[in-house]
Design a binder for these strands. Structure first.
Length: 258
DNA sequence: ATGGTCGCGCAGCGA
């Protein structure tokens, strides 16, 4: 099974690129973030025609997450289901695809360390950890895929000195991510690709992509049973090139069937 | 030169 995650930065603006990419990458399960679509505008029929069932939760102008699957898609859940007031923002959707419990997650950006949105980010990550504790079993096949807006280590940014005091690299964010991983997950890409300075996101500005100034902030966090069967992982930099790219590249992980 | 670009939607915010 090929599992992919891609922050498309508007599915409306990116649909052509996504269709082209599905045709050549041939993923079985795709987690999309930042669709920026209301549910009624989600192009489900387009994906259906390509063989994918879909689940989408959107707001319209911001956020929005989806799962596409051509290996079955059942038991869709939106958000944390933790009994508290639902997150007003469309940042998390779950589905079971080919025996794997899959989440498409768009972690809040945080804006600046100490900002209200930064606290929202940390709270959001704590709720995700709580959801795992309450609703998931680490012995199952689980893949939490998405834009975490956190570079797990200094090996995941182009220049650590350029990010001192910045969001995406701060210790509270990294600790919140470690707390999620420590529940029983593995950074699947990092296990298969140990070399530093491989990125999934590059700022549109200043030619950063061509200067290799990026960050690895998109992750597939796989439960150990699933990660043990992972055979290949790559970041598809070609999808970041050419006309009208997202500022993120897709991340792919191949896992053998159980 | 201390910015630089996108997307949304029509100003300016968010990333």
């Amino acid at each position: 099974m090929r599992i992919a995650t891609w922050n498309v930065n508007s599915l409306n603006a990116r649909l052509g690129r996504v269709e082209e990419w599905l045709a050549y990458a041939q993923p079985d399960v795709v987690c999309l973030q930042e669709t920026k679509l209301a549910d009624e505008a989600f192009p489900g029929l387009t994906f259906q025609a390509l063989g994918y069932d879909t689940a989408h939760v959107g707001e319209g102008r911001w956020n929005g997450v989806a799962i596409l699957s051509r290996v079955g898609l059942t038991d869709v859940e939106v958000g944390f289901g933790d009994g508290h007031a639902d997150d007003a923002e469309a940042r998390l959707v779950w589905a079971t695809c080919g025996g794997v419990r899959v989440a498409s997650a768009y972690v809040p950006n945080g804006r600046e360390v100490g900002h209200d949105h930064f606290r929202y980010k940390l709270d959001w990550l704590a709720r995700l950890r709580g959801h795992l504790e309450a609703r998931c079993d680490p012995a199952d096949d689980i893949a939490i895929c998405g834009d975490f807006n956190i570079a797990p280590t200094d090996d995941d940014v182009w220049d650590p000195t350029a990010f001192v005091g910045a969001t995406h690299v701060s210790e509270p964010e990294r600790a919140a991510l470690r707390s999620i991983v420590d529940w029983g997950l593995v950074d699947a890409f990092r296990v298969l690709q140990p070399e530093p300075r491989l990125y999934t996101w590059w700022d549109y500005r200043a030619g950063n992509f061509h200067k290799h100034k990026g960050m690895r902030i998109d992750l597939v966090l796989a439960s150990r049973s699933l990660a043990d069967r992972a055979s290949f992982a790559t970041i598809d930099r070609n999808a970041r090139k050419g006309k009208l790219p997202s500022d993120h590249a897709p991340l792919l992980v191949d896992v053998a069937d159980r």
